[in-house]
Design a protein around this nucleic acid. Structure first.
Lengths: 222, 222
DNA sequence: GTCCGAAAGCTTGTATGCAAGTATCCAGCC
DNA sequence: GGCTGGATACTTGCATACAAGCTTTCGGAC
């Protein structure tokens, strides 16, 4: 019973839909039809249904039997809770790393460089990939890599919000600067500074909520 | 498009399997056959498959294509990470509540009484239901009720561990006492005390890991 | 007795057909 | 013109049939 996993159509559909929703190619509130999706992806309804069942669990889509399934709206409450979870766990991971006698942040520095480079070359996808990797790496360093997965699940709501505001060069510049300060604080083992920085960092995406909400009222709920 | 949700077979199967795995009626490593489950629950394979897809996402079962699906083993790493997530978020919620000028812990006291009563009458199901409700209520008080759902997802691993050790009157007595102290600290707004108490409380289940692992080696991995 | 091989019986993955319910649209009526 | 009613087309939920692959077992050869 090896655990080699051949490409399952169901997984492919799931990944496809997650990235589509995350990147707003499927906007909040958009109608999804199982049959439509099936023939568009050249598969049957079965794998599509299984993918959708998982998406419902993730809180990304809402399905009403015999009526239809829609991409879930961006919930102000969910976004705020995601912020809470992310901030709390990142601070906790930061604290764990700080408690270590030696802290090797070389990997983080490398990711900072990569993000800086992506910023200069205006490669937004790479920029956010580096962003993800950096936050993920903090959890890896803390010894709790799977906690980041728990964060990611809830963070999808935040990602959509952030995607709505793309791309803002000034904001990206600030993100890099904040990351740099966080890594500095981590290397120095300065917990209070890290706590403050992470808190501000996590709330940044929230700040642009109200204006975006006014601009795209149909995308929001709560 | 009302959001009334009639009972879906798929959901029923999912709930059934989750509680079965959690209560160890389906032990770690047990083989699950879709066809077998289907006819045992008097449904077809379709809803069973959708339920299993969600269980895989929750990390409770592992399916190898064309080979079989088994109840996931209890992973020492997953348990430790669940402890980290739970402790971190509970402390964070505790901190949020502490920051409030007034803290009404009447609901918590009521839950303590209920747990005490369940303990005296040896009603274990009610005991753990009160336990769940108490922890959940702390998150509700903090204003982040959905964060508890994130905890619960990971906590399923811990629940199985706890279930293996059931029932230990002395341990239950200690659980109640710790809960009481936590509520006391919350009412007093004593964050350091709460942090210490919650930390100890969250690690309690972990303490019995090694002995259980020696007793049921087939149930564990990592 | 041992080893090799083929076939049968499992498993999950996917596609399709049918059922039940809802929204929509259009025709007929007032 | 406005409204009502029914048929139609859509939706998802479930069951079944088929496909592909792995494991095991049983029979035969050595």
């Amino acid at each position: 019973m090896r655990d080699r996993a051949p490409a399952r159509t169901s997984d492919r559909v799931y990944d496809e839909l997650v990235s589509a929703i995350r990147d707003l190619r499927l906007v909040p509130g958009a109608s999804l039809s199982e049959t439509d999706l099936a023939e568009r992806l050249h598969v049957s309804r079965t794998p599509v249904r299984e993918a959708i069942a998982r998406l419902v669990d993730a809180g990304l889509v809402r399905v009403v039997p015999q009526v239809g399934t829609r991409v879930g709206l961006i919930s102000g409450r969910d976004v705020e809770e995601a912020r809470f979870v992310r901030e709390s766990l990142e601070v906790a991971a930061f604290e764990v790393v700080c408690a270590r006698p030696v802290r090797d942040v070389a990997v983080l520095r490398e990711l900072l460089d990569r993000q800086e480079h992506s910023y200069r070359t205006e490669n937004y996808d790479a920029f956010f990939a580096a962003d993800e990797a950096l936050h993920s790496e903090i959890f890896t360093l803390s010894g709790y890599p799977r906690a980041w997965q728990a964060v990611q699940r809830m963070k999808l709501q935040l990602d959509r919000l952030r995607r709505l505001a793309l791309p803002d060069a000034a904001a990206m510049r600030e993100l890099i600067d904040e990351h740099t300060k966080i890594v500095d604080a981590l290397e120095a083992g300065d917990l209070p500074a890290g706590r403050s920085l992470i808190s501000r960092h996590a709330r940044r995406a929230l700040d642009l909520g109200p204006s975006l909400r006014a601009q795209y009222p149909d995308y929001f709920t709560d």
